[in-house]
């Protein structure tokens, strides 16, 4: 995910690569999230969103990563879903 970060960083040493890989691994390990669990979330998200829009199920991505919380530098786990929309459904008012 942070491929570009690695190249733009001043210090592109193997140590930084190791740290980044480790951090991401630990986000998954600590949250105890299995691929199966992510798949379940994905299925349910598809159901919810399908009421409002047609979505491209093939291109849908869902992953656990880290993000900054507010102004602080503390990183917290974050669930990022990328849901391509084919067409909005216009619901009767």
């Amino acid at each position: 995910m942070d491929i570009f970060k690695i190249f733009t960083r001043e210090d592109s040493s193997s140590k930084e690569v190791a740290k980044e890989r480790l951090r991401l691994l630990l986000v998954h390990d600590r949250a105890n999230v299995s691929p199966h669990f992510l798949e379940m979330i994905k299925e349910e998200l598809i159901q919810v969103f399908s009421d409002y829009m047609e979505i491209e199920e093939e291109g849908m991505e869902i992953e656990l990563t880290r993000t900054k919380l507010g102004k602080s530098d503390a990183l917290v786990p974050a669930l990022i879903a990328n849901i391509p929309i084919k067409r909005m459904k216009h619901l009767p008012k």
Binding site: S13, S14, K15, K19, L22, R23, L26
Partner: peptide
């Protein structure tokens, strides 16, 4: 190796 940036250093591991 730590000096060359090819091994995680003490601070890295403590922090993680």
């Amino acid at each position: 190796m730590v000096k060359k940036g090819d091994m995680m250093d003490i601070e890295d591991m403590i922090e993680i």
